[in-house]
Design a protein around this nucleic acid. Structure first.
Length: 300
DNA sequence: AAAAGACGCAACCGCAAAAAA
DNA sequence: CTTTTTTGCGGTTGCGTCTTT
């Protein structure tokens, strides 16, 4: 017996979200918090399945999201974490405040992969690419398959498993399940990657030892570039002033505890418990957050 | 200036794990 | 313990935008 669909798909809307839908979803969650996603569309008056609502919220509407390109620091962290965790995008994302697994996955596939290849690093193993002339036939095949895969985007799950188990990352991936407390510094690792060493050869250092200069403007500088997307345009119209602010929100909305620390970066409380946004939500531009400190916090 | 191709990103799909009954 | 439901994840797709020819 097969699994039942997450919802009755008949009559449900698909595709890009409209401003109206976004509004309804935000309004609902701000009022009621994140409850059973299956029930959300019904209660919020949306013709979407719960899954779609959850995705929309977590990947786009969540207030604590950073928008815009990943900063160099974040990118380096992604590379590092990927070396340790593999394609565990959600795990990787959990170390990057305000970033979603989807965003990181996209960034990996569109930017970082190419970048690493250009640098002569295999994005899969994080080891130097073997020059074609000296490579063993089998290795050549592997490499070729990987290239084909990146072009066609088709994946054989079995092959993927086999391939993954061949990588030197396996041990570190297993270890990562124990949790990331013992994880070595991303910066340290990235330096090693640059030098052509695998990350599991890297000596561990403590999170508090991380000292990286970061440019606070870099993470937000290009956020306007995404404004051309339909979704961003949609959000231009959002009137957050419509949302009445409940005085006891902190008790009602459990999720709010986490989110609020970020919301307060771009939401002003003008005393009337109304939300004001500066700048308005569309591009989610936030005051710069020091990624370094938050990263360290998370590791601790 | 127009067409073709490449690129980037939001959203979808299916599977698996976790939780609930 | 088994079955059902819900949630989360990773891979993939579709389409709008940008770049190149």
């Amino acid at each position: 017996m097969g699994r039942q669909p997450c919802c009755d798909k008949v009559g449900l809307k698909k595709g890009p979200w409209t401003a109206e839908e976004d509004k309804k979803l935000i309004n609902f969650i701000l009022t009621n918090g994140q409850c059973c996603w299956r029930a959300v569309p019904k209660l919020a008056g949306l013709l979407r399945c719960g899954k779609s609502c959850r995705l929309r919220w977590t990947n786009y509407l969540r207030p604590d999201l950073k928008r815009g390109l990943l900063s160099d620091f974040e990118e380096q962290m992604v590379i590092d974490l990927h070396a340790q965790l593999g394609n565990r995008w959600s795990k990787i994302a959990s170390h990057l405040p305000g970033r979603t697994d989807n965003e990181i996955k996209n960034h990996w596939n569109t930017h970082i992969k190419k970048k690493l290849k250009k640098m002569g690093i295999d994005p899969l193993t994080h080891k130097p690419l073997i020059p074609a002339a000296t490579a063993q036939p089998q290795q050549q095949q592997c490499q070729q398959k990987e290239e084909e895969r990146s072009v066609t985007s088709s994946t054989d799950p079995e092959m993927e498993k086999t391939k993954e188990s061949e990588t030197p990352l396996e041990s570190s991936i297993v270890e990562s399940k124990e949790e990331d407390k013992s994880m070595s510094s991303p910066l340290e690792n990235s330096m090693e990657i640059m030098n052509g060493f695998c990350t599991d050869e890297v000596p561990l250092i403590q999170p508090h030892e991380i000292l990286v200069p970061c440019d606070p403007t870099s993470s937000t500088s290009s956020s306007s570039s995404s404004s051309s997307s339909a979704s961003s345009m949609i959000l231009e119209d959002l009137q957050f002033l419509d949302f009445d602010w409940h005085c006891d929100y902190s008790n009602d909305l459990g999720f709010w505890d986490d989110a609020f620390t970020s919301w307060d970066l771009f939401i002003e409380d003008d005393g009337d418990r109304k939300l004001t946004l500066d700048p308005p939500l569309p591009h989610y531009q936030r005051l710069p957050v020091d990624p370094e400190s938050r990263y360290s916090e998370q590791l601790l």
